[in-house]
Write a protein that binds this DNA or RNA. Sequence first.
DNA 1: CTGAAAGCGCTAACAC
DNA 2: GTGTTAGCGCTTTCAG
Lengths: 351, 351
Amino acid sequence: MAKVTIYDIAREAGVGIGTVSRVLNNHTSVTPETRKRVKEVARRLNYQPHTYAQRLARRQSETISAIIPFFTNYFFIEVLQGVQDRISQLGYDLVLYGVNNVDQVETHLSRALQRGKVDGILFFSMKLPEKIVARLRDAKLPMVLVDTVSPDFDSISVANVEGAYAATTHLLELGHRSVGMVNAQLVSTPALERLQGYRHALESHGITYSEGLVKTGSSNKQDGFNREAGYEAMEEFIEMGPDMPRAFFVSSDIQAMGAIAALTESGLRVPEDVAIVGFDDIELARHMRLTTMRQPMYQMGVLAIERLVARMSNPEMEILHTTFSPTLIVRESCGALRSSEGMPSVKSKQR
Amino acid sequence: MAKVTIYDIAREAGVGIGTVSRVLNNHTSVTPETRKRVKEVARRLNYQPHTYAQRLARRQSETISAIIPFFTNYFFIEVLQGVQDRISQLGYDLVLYGVNNVDQVETHLSRALQRGKVDGILFFSMKLPEKIVARLRDAKLPMVLVDTVSPDFDSISVANVEGAYAATTHLLELGHRSVGMVNAQLVSTPALERLQGYRHALESHGITYSEGLVKTGSSNKQDGFNREAGYEAMEEFIEMGPDMPRAFFVSSDIQAMGAIAALTESGLRVPEDVAIVGFDDIELARHMRLTTMRQPMYQMGVLAIERLVARMSNPEMEILHTTFSPTLIVRESCGALRSSEGMPSVKSKQR
DNA sequence: CTGAAAGCGCTAACAC
DNA sequence: GTGTTAGCGCTTTCAG
């Protein structure tokens, strides 16, 4: 590999390195003529600037890091696409710190905090370790939170209350008077907020909220946002027998998968016997024809980068919290669509 | 943020910067005493080395980049976990270039090739642009291919022939004499190899291979590895009427999803009427109870990094191609499990 | 406009 | 052992 430096160019073009630097960085005040000559030589020599020499001299890294839990799966992958697209348009590099378990959060954050390494951080879907907050603040490193919130930093998230309200309302407007909820553990903020939205929807339709109609299941992996928990919760509902609601708002699509499995195994059909609305719109949801609340993941990623860049260029900017409204995606699981085909599930046809 | 440099430390500790550098880099030949003192001061001043100054001086980036198609979704996410875990153990940074469409491949590759930027590249699941090969070779930048192959570079991939053979054999051993295949476009190497394995399996069981029993569908997005193509292919089979095979090897899980939908919509049940075996073991497969060939994705990621690091430290090393054997995961879609046992519980199906 | 020179912060070769 | 001195390759004053 040619190890061409600006000195080589300077020599060849018969100018000083300062001038070379100027034309390469599109600075003003260089004669069109010399500019042309330098550019010409640079191309001929196949010059490439050395990334780290630039970063050192410019005192900025032109890179952004993302600390992201791998286990959120589809959500993160979609958001990441938005992040990636925007970031590369802006000419930044993305260094990824994927977190497989909570212990890695601190390690990775520390690395990202290494002096000069990154110009900004995106922190995803996890609660920010308290001990880090202080370090972060006096490191003065711009950071924006995605899918999680803290008063100290900018954030991009989803309107959970509103989304749950819309989901529940949809079921109500379909004529259901008894709507249950399969929720995740209340230690999780999204779970809490979605419960709120569910409850509000009920009440503003003149229906009394009842604790007995909200179940969580015991599997607490990922705060209950998992398939088993959904399965277990629905099993409990099924045990209620005839009193069981015929419509459910489930706090995540992945739980809805479990819930539907439980239903199917008990000979209950979706949506003929039971209507389901989920939350997230993971890829699975489309295949399963699940009605659900979609989060604008790609846009969230794009905005996250834009917000971060904005803060980088103006650290004194007021802290901004943006929430996106999820959209109701009507498919078949809620029964709103009249369909002769039913749900294309392997199991639903086996019985 | 404290902008502490080794000069500050040197002054405070009453030594030269050389000495400071030595103790910080755990070099030999420093009196235990001064070593202790320097470390002490460094900690007190909360010193952090400047990443890019180090990289410039050391002439190595301690970072690896991955160029990876986002659209392979689940596969890539799993592999990435292995990559991430191993990479951070080794103390490297991962810069990610996610590709959303083919045009980005070259852009991203060029960026990764920027002088000094990375010590090595991981290139995933896509065919390497010819024009790049040359540049890559004389950039002398170590690169390993994952899930794709080229004679010029190390690679980690999956034994497609073998996997397809195993899948087909499984169906054959279940008693099926007529086994069809839903394949992807033959322009894709994996598709070609999987066809080979299918054919070999047939022939070594004394069954004549027939072209009429292999269908692809017309949707050519991602070389036919998509849901619609699977759906279309299966529709064609269904039109065969009574001559239609009752068992199918499908070249990817995502196609299998489409195929199953087509079957279900025609009133055919899986596995009672038709047996299906897929390939990949994406997350969806578990939920759909799809029998399939699992690729050891996490390990592939780990090995990819190890291979890359090996090559970085020894560029003259002979080029190595490693193929992993996929494992047959028996679930319900193939009919091997007796349905009289009832539906397995959700939990028992978890990995 | 442009050349020379002084850093950016660290590593490493070289004397003492 | 340890201080000194060159770089690493580029950006950015500062004179002219």
